[in-house]
Simulated scan of single mutants.
Amino acid sequence: MNVLEQEFIKGFVRMCSDGFAQGWHERNGGNLTYRMKDEDIESVKNAFSYQRDWYPIQTEVPYLKGEYFLVTGSGKYFRNVELDEEANIGIVEIDETGTKYRIVWGLKNGAVPTSELPSHLMNHEIKKLVTHGEHRVIYHCHATNVIALTFVLPLKDEIFTRELWEMATECPVVFPRGVGVVPWMVPGGKEIAVATSQLMKKYDVAIWAHHGIFCSGADFDLTFGLAHTVEKSAEILVKMLSMSSTKLQTITSDNFRDLAKAFQVTLPEEFL
């Protein structure tokens, strides 16, 4: 069966195109990874090649041993994914020690996985454990308005969460656990991977200061929708701050409590 005709491949490619259309992936910015299901692997395993070398992940992810991931490539443009899938994305296998990977499909002509692979895999491992396997998608994008806010708001979880919640009524329902904030760090290294993985034990969204959004979800629609909601709320906040530094009215703490009751979600009191 044609690999490119599989629904999980189509969903992955569509998410890349949708992110580019939003303006979140200038040049080769951003990355996307998907932890494949058994049925996904079964549907394409005849196309796998095991001839390529194993490479160190630069971190240890023992709970991901033997897993397969669909990933974007390092230096690749999201714009080009739909134009040539095999050149820009690929499937990697994690070895039995959780310390190495090899490419089994795609990423042709010597391409390699995203440089953020250590961050993605460390956070996949965390989300696999805390969601009991439900979460499968990790997405990083350069959401414009979120980045802008990291220059003017204190880099604190409770402040970012409360401000984003107040901008749109749906926000506490879409991300009821809030958002975490990582101060600026060099991208692609172990330090930012560790800092993000600590936040991902509690949140589904981490904001990387002056860099963008890093988020997790169960599938492509939910994960993209999460990033889209956070960025839309940030856009409203940017516009509101450009008009006035004072809110004449807003959603109050008691309003949030009423909302939580109506939608049967739990909102941490630390953000209220």
Results as ranks from 00 to 15, higher is better:
residue 1 M to C: 05
residue 2 N to V: 15
residue 4 L to W: 07
residue 5 E to F: 05
residue 5 E to V: 12
residue 6 Q to F: 06
residue 6 Q to Y: 08
residue 8 F to I: 10
residue 8 F to A: 11
residue 15 M to E: 12
residue 15 M to Y: 15
residue 16 C to S: 09
residue 21 A to D: 11
residue 24 W to V: 01
residue 25 H to N: 10
residue 29 G to L: 14
residue 31 N to Q: 07
residue 32 L to C: 10
residue 33 T to S: 14
residue 33 T to A: 09
residue 34 Y to G: 03
residue 39 E to M: 13
residue 40 D to R: 06
residue 41 I to S: 07
residue 54 W to V: 05
residue 54 W to C: 09
residue 55 Y to G: 15
residue 62 P to A: 12
residue 66 G to D: 05
residue 67 E to W: 14
residue 70 L to Y: 04
residue 71 V to G: 14
residue 72 T to I: 09
residue 72 T to N: 07
residue 72 T to P: 12
residue 73 G to T: 03
residue 74 S to R: 11
residue 75 G to N: 02
residue 78 F to P: 03
residue 79 R to V: 12
residue 80 N to H: 14
residue 81 V to N: 01
residue 83 L to M: 14
residue 85 E to P: 12
residue 85 E to F: 11
residue 86 E to S: 13
residue 86 E to I: 15
residue 86 E to F: 15
residue 88 N to D: 02
residue 89 I to M: 07
residue 89 I to W: 10
residue 90 G to T: 06
residue 93 E to H: 07
residue 95 D to Q: 02
residue 97 T to K: 07
residue 98 G to L: 03
residue 103 I to R: 10
residue 105 W to F: 03
residue 105 W to N: 03
residue 107 L to S: 04
residue 108 K to N: 14
residue 109 N to G: 11
residue 112 V to K: 07
residue 118 P to N: 05
residue 119 S to A: 14
residue 122 M to R: 07
residue 123 N to E: 09
residue 124 H to T: 00
residue 128 K to M: 09
residue 135 H to A: 11
residue 135 H to T: 10
residue 136 R to H: 11
residue 138 I to H: 13
residue 144 T to Q: 06
residue 151 F to A: 01
residue 154 P to M: 01
residue 156 K to W: 13
residue 158 E to S: 03
residue 163 E to I: 04
residue 163 E to Y: 11
residue 168 A to F: 00
residue 168 A to C: 09
residue 169 T to L: 00
residue 170 E to H: 10
residue 177 R to S: 12
residue 177 R to N: 13
residue 179 V to P: 07
residue 179 V to F: 10
residue 180 G to M: 01
residue 182 V to F: 15
residue 185 M to C: 14
residue 188 G to C: 05
residue 189 G to D: 08
residue 190 K to Q: 12
residue 190 K to W: 05
residue 197 S to P: 10
residue 199 L to P: 02
residue 202 K to I: 08
residue 203 Y to P: 04
residue 207 I to W: 07
residue 208 W to D: 05
residue 210 H to T: 11
residue 212 G to Q: 03
residue 216 S to D: 04
residue 217 G to Q: 03
residue 218 A to E: 14
residue 222 L to R: 08
residue 233 S to C: 14
residue 234 A to N: 04
residue 238 V to F: 01
residue 239 K to N: 11
residue 242 S to N: 09
residue 243 M to D: 12
residue 243 M to R: 02
residue 244 S to A: 08
residue 248 L to G: 01
residue 248 L to Y: 09
residue 250 T to Q: 09
residue 251 I to Q: 00
residue 251 I to K: 00
residue 251 I to W: 00
residue 251 I to F: 00
residue 252 T to Y: 10
residue 258 D to G: 00
residue 258 D to R: 14
residue 259 L to Q: 06
residue 259 L to T: 05
residue 259 L to G: 05
residue 263 F to R: 00
residue 265 V to C: 05
residue 267 L to K: 00
residue 271 F to P: 02
residue 272 L to Q: 06
